[in-house]
């Protein structure tokens, strides 16, 4: 009993879990939870959650990706155009997902096989993706079938569909985590040369993480399209950085090899609630950004202190490179 309790407390997702619960209580006290609030919350944060899951897997494998937001915008535009041009709806979904995986495969090839620094590689593909998005759909527009929008904003047994899809993606990430591939991802993330010596095909593992991220971003983009009821080539710009920040606050070490997707999703939900809280507190809009920043920093310090409590000596702390390692 005590052992399994320690296991939960030691989990890298634990500090953000505590923070998230605290914020749910604060939010509930301030505005109360109605069913429509909950559905709205998950439908509007759906894309961020998806991008965060993808980012988490990449970071755990020792990489980084700043192009995922632009990728979401691209898929958003492509999907909108496909539906506009009267494609079969199911086919449009499948083709969009395939294109998003191809985008991921592009990143994965450049980073995994050509060994280009992931920051630079994805910075380059970011421009390509946003440029393509503007070419596909120069101005915001398009219409989505009402049935699709209603399905996306609906619930099953009171649980929002968007949340169910997030859970399904988390289960997929967990499945990867519990497979030999998952073990190899965190091994490569911790130390690629050691993994190579141990017989891991490092290039392929890196490649996989980017393709996986491409897939979940595709799902996110389709949800986003339903939420907006159309396409917008500039929609995803803030997503990449928010996703990276969500991962870090969710216990995924930027240096790679540590953390899990669940914590990262908690992190993105925390960000969503944070924005909600600031708005609900009727903060003047000019100061919202600043207040959000202050709460965020305090949250990070709390998370750091919670994690530090489990390590003993000072040298060990330094070795752990910061709060979220």
């Amino acid at each position: 009993m005590r052992n399994s309790l320690m296991k939960i407390v030691r989990n890298t997702a634990f500090p953000i879990f505590v923070l998230l619960i605290a914020f749910i209580i604060i939010n509930g006290a301030m505005s109360g939870f109605t069913s429509s609030f909950v559905v709205g919350f998950f439908t509007s944060n759906f894309a961020l959650c998806c991008v965060t899951i993808g980012t988490a897997v990449i970071i755990m494998g020792g990489g980084i990706d700043v192009s995922l937001g632009a990728m979401v915008a691209l898929i958003n535009c492509i999907f909108t155009q496909l539906v506009e041009h009267g494609w079969n709806f199911g086919l449009a979904v499948v083709v969009s997902l395939l294109i998003s995986m191809a985008c991921g495969a592009l990143n994965g090839t450049v980073v995994g096989f050509f060994r280009v620094s992931p920051m630079l590689a994805t910075f380059g593909s970011l421009s390509i993706f946003s440029g393509l998005a503007l070419t596909v759909l120069p101005l915001p527009g398009g219409t989505m079938p009402v049935g699709f929008r209603n399905f996306y904003m609906g619930t099953i047994a009171g649980i929002p569909i968007a949340l169910l899809i997030i859970i399904a993606l988390l289960l997929l990430a967990f499945l990867v985590h519990r497979s030999p591939l998952g073990t190899k991802i965190i091994a490569v993330g911790l130390d690629a040369p050691k993994s190579f010596i141990s017989g891991v095909r490092v290039n392929s593992v890196t490649f996989f993480t980017y393709v996986f991220a491409g897939f979940v971003c595709g799902v996110g983009a389709i949800g986003l399209t339903a939420n907006m009821g159309g396409g917008d080539p500039n929609v995803g710009t803030a997503l990449s950085m928010s996703a990276i920040a969500s991962c870090v606050i969710g216990g995924v070490a930027l240096s790679g090899g540590k953390g899990n997707a669940l914590g990262a999703v908690f992190g993105s939900l925390f960000f969503g609630l944070l924005i909600n809280t600031v708005i609900a507190a009727r903060t003047p809009s000019f100061q919202q950004g600043m207040i959000r920043g202050i709460i965020l920093l305090v949250g990070m310090i709390v998370a750091a202190v919670l994690l530090r409590g489990t390590t003993s000596t000072r040298a060990k702390q330094l070795r752990n490179e910061g709060a979220n390692d």
Binding site: S179, I186, G257
Partner: peptide, 28 residues
């Protein structure tokens, strides 16, 4: 000589790292 052990894996996981056994063809 430089050790090929991973500090983010358990001792048991490290030992089987090069030949990870699976069940059902998928799960570790």
């Amino acid at each position: 000589q430089e050790l090929s052990l991973f500090s983010n894996l358990s001792v048991a996981q490290n030992l089987s790292f090069c030949t990870i056994p699976v069940k059902g063809g998928l799960i570790t």
